[in-house]
Measured scan of single mutants.
Amino acid sequence: ERLAYIADHLGFSWTELARELDFTEEQIHQIRIENPNSLQDQSHALLKYWLERDGKHATDTNLVECLTKINRMDIVHLME
């Protein structure tokens, strides 16, 4: 799945992406607590919560915009 692929590449950027996707610091902290050992797991959790929260509004376009804002064009190019 594309989101899994994106999550695998996010690394430390997942928190920046979370902020761009309008997650609160508290929500970010919660994701860290729930997935303490792996940045990859934290990234996967973030994208899963985003899909659950935004439903049909959780679009590739939205994700590309946010990834561009945090200067992760490498991931944007991987999505093309």
Results as ranks from 00 to 15, higher is better:
Ile31Asn: 03
Ala18Phe: 00
Gly11Cys: 06
Glu34Thr: 10
Glu16Gln: 15
Phe12Asp: 02
Arg53Gln: 09
Phe23Tyr: 03
Thr61Pro: 14
Leu47Thr: 11
Glu25Pro: 13
His44Asn: 14
Thr68Gln: 06
Gln30Arg: 12
Asp41Cys: 06
Thr61Tyr: 07
Leu17Thr: 03
Arg2Asp: 15
His57Val: 12
Asp74Thr: 01
Glu25His: 08
Val64Cys: 05
Ser38Ile: 02
Lys69Ile: 06
Asn35Val: 07
Ile33Phe: 11
His57Ser: 14
Asp22Arg: 10
Gln30Asn: 06
Arg53Asn: 05
Asn37Lys: 08
Lys69Arg: 12
Thr15Cys: 09
Ala7Met: 10
Tyr5Ser: 06
Gly55Ser: 10
Tyr49Met: 14
Glu16Cys: 07
His29Leu: 12
His57Asp: 09
Asp54Leu: 10
Leu51Cys: 03
Glu25Cys: 04
Ile75Lys: 00
Trp14Ile: 00
Val64Pro: 03
Gly11Glu: 08
Glu16Arg: 13
Trp50Asp: 01
Leu47Val: 10
Arg53Gly: 06
Asn35Lys: 10
Ser38Arg: 07
Ile28Lys: 01
Val76Leu: 08
Asn71Gly: 12
His57Ile: 04
Glu25Tyr: 06
His57Pro: 13
Leu47Gln: 01
Leu3Asp: 02
Leu10Gln: 01
Ile6Arg: 01
Tyr49Thr: 15
Leu39Val: 10
Arg19Lys: 15
Val64Asn: 02
Glu65Tyr: 15
Trp14His: 00
Gln40Cys: 05
Tyr49Arg: 06
Ser38Leu: 07
Asn71Trp: 02
Leu3Cys: 07
Glu16Lys: 03
Asp74Tyr: 00
Asp60Met: 13
Lys48Tyr: 07
Glu25Val: 09
Glu20Trp: 05
Ile33Glu: 14
Thr15Phe: 03
His9Lys: 03
Arg32Gly: 09
Asn62Tyr: 05
Glu26Lys: 14
Leu17Asn: 00
Gln40Val: 08
Gln42His: 00
Leu51Asp: 09
Glu20Tyr: 07
Phe12Pro: 05
Ile70Arg: 01
Leu51Arg: 08
Val76Ser: 04
Asp41Ala: 12
Leu3Thr: 11
Lys48Glu: 11
Leu63Ala: 06
Leu17Tyr: 02
Leu67Phe: 01
Leu10Thr: 02
Lys69Trp: 03
His9Val: 10
Pro36Tyr: 04
Asn37Pro: 03
Asn35His: 06
Asn62Asp: 14
Glu52Leu: 13
Gln42Trp: 02
His57Gln: 14
Arg19Gly: 12
Leu17Phe: 15
Pro36Asp: 11
Phe12Ser: 14
Ala18Val: 01
Thr15Asp: 04
Asn37Trp: 07
Asn35Phe: 07
Asn35Gln: 14
Trp14Ala: 01
His57Trp: 09
Leu47Asn: 01
Glu16Ser: 11
Phe12Gly: 12
Arg32Tyr: 02
Thr15Ala: 11
Thr59Ser: 14
Glu26Arg: 08
Cys66Pro: 14
Leu10Ala: 01
Asn37Ser: 11
Asn71Cys: 09
Phe23Gly: 00
Asn62His: 13
Thr59Ala: 10
Cys66Glu: 15
Gln30His: 10
Leu21Thr: 02
Thr61Gln: 07
Gly55Asp: 14
Leu39Thr: 05
Ser13Trp: 05
Met73Gln: 02
Ala58Tyr: 13
Glu52Met: 08
Pro36Glu: 10
Ile70Met: 12
Thr61Glu: 08
Arg72Ser: 15
Gln30Tyr: 04
Thr15Asn: 10
Ser13Tyr: 03
Val76Lys: 02
Ile31Cys: 13
Ile28Gly: 01
Asp54Val: 11
Glu25Met: 06
Ile31Pro: 00
Cys66Ile: 05
Trp50Ser: 08
Asp8Arg: 14
Leu47Met: 15
Asp74Ile: 01
Thr15Pro: 13
Tyr5Ala: 14
Asp8Ile: 03
Val76Trp: 09
His9Tyr: 02
Asp74His: 01
Gln40Gly: 05
Asp8Pro: 13
Arg2Gly: 04
Leu10Glu: 02
Asp54Arg: 08
Val76Pro: 04
Arg32Glu: 14
Gln27Arg: 07
Thr24Phe: 09
Trp14Ser: 00
Lys56Cys: 15
Ala58Phe: 09
Trp14Cys: 01
Glu34Tyr: 05
Leu21Cys: 02
His29Tyr: 03
Lys69Leu: 09
